[in-house]
Design a binder for these strands. Sequence first.
DNA 1: GAATTTTTGACGTACGTAAATCAGAAATCT
DNA 2: AGATTTCTGATTTACGTACGTCAAAAATTC
Lengths: 345, 345
Amino acid sequence: MRPTVHDIAAEAGVSLATVDRVLNNRPGVRSVTRERVEQAIATLGYVRDVAAANLAKSRSYPLVFILPAGENSFMRGLEAEVRSAMSRSATERLDITILSVPAFDAPALAAALLDARERRPAGVAVVAVDAPDVTEAVKRLRDDGIAVVTLVSDLPGSGRDHFAGVDNVAAGRTAGSLMGRFLGGGEGPVAVLAGSMLVRDHRDRLEGFQAVMSGDFASRRILPVIEGQDDPSLVETLVDALLGQHPDLAGIYSLGAGNRGLVAALEKAGKGRAVCTIAHELTPHSRAGLLSGTIDALLNQNAGHEVRSAIRVLKAKADGLPVIAAQERIRIDIFLKDNLPLEQE
Amino acid sequence: MRPTVHDIAAEAGVSLATVDRVLNNRPGVRSVTRERVEQAIATLGYVRDVAAANLAKSRSYPLVFILPAGENSFMRGLEAEVRSAMSRSATERLDITILSVPAFDAPALAAALLDARERRPAGVAVVAVDAPDVTEAVKRLRDDGIAVVTLVSDLPGSGRDHFAGVDNVAAGRTAGSLMGRFLGGGEGPVAVLAGSMLVRDHRDRLEGFQAVMSGDFASRRILPVIEGQDDPSLVETLVDALLGQHPDLAGIYSLGAGNRGLVAALEKAGKGRAVCTIAHELTPHSRAGLLSGTIDALLNQNAGHEVRSAIRVLKAKADGLPVIAAQERIRIDIFLKDNLPLEQE
DNA sequence: GAATTTTTGACGTACGTAAATCAGAAATCT
DNA sequence: AGATTTCTGATTTACGTACGTCAAAAATTC
């Protein structure tokens, strides 16, 4: 049987109250006594029963998630994951509020952060837009002792506690490697399609992609970046024009959202197979594109993992516990049509 | 405040005991009363507090893991994951025993299964070898009401409750797609290196690989399968011979273990870059091969996910609860040198 | 050595559920 | 109607920890 506080009390020859004081770092224990108790904990190999502890504490963690509004399938999937976490709030003692703000809108995001602050939560998770007033708002939250985790897109220099998302430079590099190898030795330029250079994740992906292309596949010409605002219809218009201008286009790297428009434009022009297309995020549209052969490879960040990691980190920070960085690292998934997970996941 | 059993009792106008009988499917409740209680549960939105329930039950799950012995890095990593789960046994109420058997040895495995049976565990997880006496042993475990999960390599037809591993046919297909695309239009044959055709996972990978190669890249010649018994030194000898026999070799698909020998042979022959190499499982050796450029792509199954999934399923089966299949699906990771996770993970 | 402060012990209640016991009520059978 | 079986209620104890109160003991200061 595993040892309990009672066993420690017996082993150390002290009372339960003293054991409790030591375990929870409460004052009023002489250092010699404290050491005796710690010795007993060590020899018995006592591990606190978290379930019982939480039950006794009946602690709860009020958290706020700030997510961009709009049709972006990835973001809606992210929201679904947050709601799924809310449904588990019973067992995990969470009390989650979701705030919705327009995408790429720094003032609105800053306002939402201050709104979140008013609610005095234990922590806030936010999909960041890289702007000074957002950075400032995050700092004010931290000054109030509220833990802040950036989600999907980071905000370095804001003093956020943690970033729950993938290494986007590495993602861009991976896209570059795949593009270069898939294209082989042929001719024709490669286009890059982003959402907006206002968000850090898109800038990082671009940086990684360009680094690999100019390093390992230097002969390949890269066209200037196109910004589609993650809007399917705008993306479609832009890609229509692109295909018209560059009939010899060899590849497209879509590092943002709005892939529905991209797939539509390519298929309309009959170029689904001819152009090597690498995109981000597994959504119903990008899945269809991959299965039809229009998209050749998909890089993905698992929204569920990110949300769960953000919650774990916020809870840990709220309790003043350390975060195991390695455990919270989010992987970059690569999907081809052959290793696509089934729909219902 | 979230509702408790007391609230339900009050709402339904019954006693705590009756609520408990309904919640735990115990007999002794008239169907009309049962319905009243269920109605109250629904209207109040009651969710059982698992922490408190487990605390009260002080239930524990004795499980047995049967793993192959030997130097195979992936299997050692798998064992490390099981041990890490054991260290969490405190909080998850697990009581895990590990049995070790020689690799690819069906009689030894069957004996180990019967040994496990003697221990009367709630469940057994086993890395299966596909042989009649193993199938038979699994059936006997099931007849005794012991849940059985196959791990990494499946055993269809044995009546096992679940398979915790990747879709190895899809993994083979993915390897085929990557191989075909990376090679482009050049000449030269492709070799396939397996561990043993006695295990299902290797057979499945081969099937998937051959299907894609003969379908999408039909002009490419595939050499007969080489069996290296997952043994680095044997693999090295075999690959030495292979490279001698086929100076124009374009690619190698290594679908088993022993990649240390493969990398050594390729680098010795100065063919690290020239031969497109796709292998399985991220280990210290395969990681080094990927970083040096000798291995071009790595397919991986996350041992930690598999072990945790196996445990979840065994617990659920032991409690007679349903398993959410989608949640237990293990993904096939693709790693290039650009998206390799850091060492410490 | 008396007064003061600090440390420790003893004890109780709470968290939400499980599970057992015993007694009484209701339904079913003969 | 009486006997039997089946349901239901009331109550208690337990799981392992948190946390508070109060009093006693020990250490420290003067």
